[in-house]
């Protein structure tokens, strides 16, 4: 039996793990709705907006960590989880966007448009999610083949911009305690810096002219 099979066994496990935040918030929301303990705060709708937002950012960081982890640990098979993690990032982003559109703006599209135009806070969040749409669409095998490996990879570097937009969005969200947004900013800098550093080193090692 080929060796890689065990990674396929791990996939459903990772899938379920990725689902736990959503299951948790669903249960807490349900408890709140029922007036039972263990639920959300007195403002459950804003809790949901906040929760889905922070988890979007967390999934994004985890996804971005795959490549550096592969290089550092040498466990190349980690790549098998990258698409799933990326799609979970997009899923959380969609939940976050939906909760904003629904709970915060109650589908008042005019208000939403005004929000986007007037407020860098909202604009940065919108950019963050929107940039993930082409990545989710082209995440299939078919699209990789259609675009060709290197072009596909270039498109998928949009996730870097999405991450930057997400951290900026988070920074704008906090009223005065900037420790958490700063921590995410540092983490993102490390994750992107690793790639930049490698790219530079590789370029340096290559023969000068081709």
């Amino acid at each position: 039996m080929p060796k890689y099979n065990r990674w396929w066994i791990l996939k459903p496990v990772v899938f379920l793990l990725c689902l736990t935040p959503t299951l948790w918030i669903s249960r807490a929301g349900w408890l709140t709705f029922q007036g039972l303990p263990g639920g959300l705060s007195a403002n459950p709708l804003d809790d949901i907006i906040e929760f889905t937002g922070i988890w979007t950012l967390r999934f994004l960081m985890i996804t971005l960590a795959i490549t550096p982890l592969r290089r550092i640990t040498g466990i190349s098979s980690l790549i098998r989880f990258r698409r799933m993690l990326g799609l979970f990032t997009f899923f959380q982003g969609c939940l976050h966007l939906t909760s904003y559109v629904w709970f915060d703006q109650t589908f008042l599209w005019g208000e939403i448009l005004k929000d986007i135009i007037k407020r860098p806070f909202i604009l940065s969040g919108m950019i963050g999610v929107t940039l993930m749409v082409p990545l989710a669409v082209t995440s299939t095998r078919k699209w990789i083949a259609r675009l060709g490996g290197s072009r596909w990879q270039k498109v998928h570097r949009l996730i870097y911009l999405s991450g930057i937009a997400g951290v900026i969005h988070y920074y704008f969200y906090e009223k005065s305690d900037i420790v958490d947004p700063l921590a995410y900013g540092i983490l993102l800098t490390i994750l992107l810096g690793f790639r930049g550093w490698r790219a530079m080193r590789q370029r340096g090692l290559k023969p000068a002219a081709t």
Binding site: R27, W30, L31, F33, Q34, G35, L36, P37, G38
Partner: peptide, 25 residues
């Protein structure tokens, strides 16, 4: 709240937190 808690515990529903008719908010 006490009542709902008690009722749910008795019915073993605390964890699931569901279906206590008449106890909806």
């Amino acid at each position: 709240r006490e009542f709902i808690k008690t009722a749910s515990t008795i019915l073993g529903l605390a964890a699931v937190g569901t279906i206590v008719p008449g106890c909806a908010p």
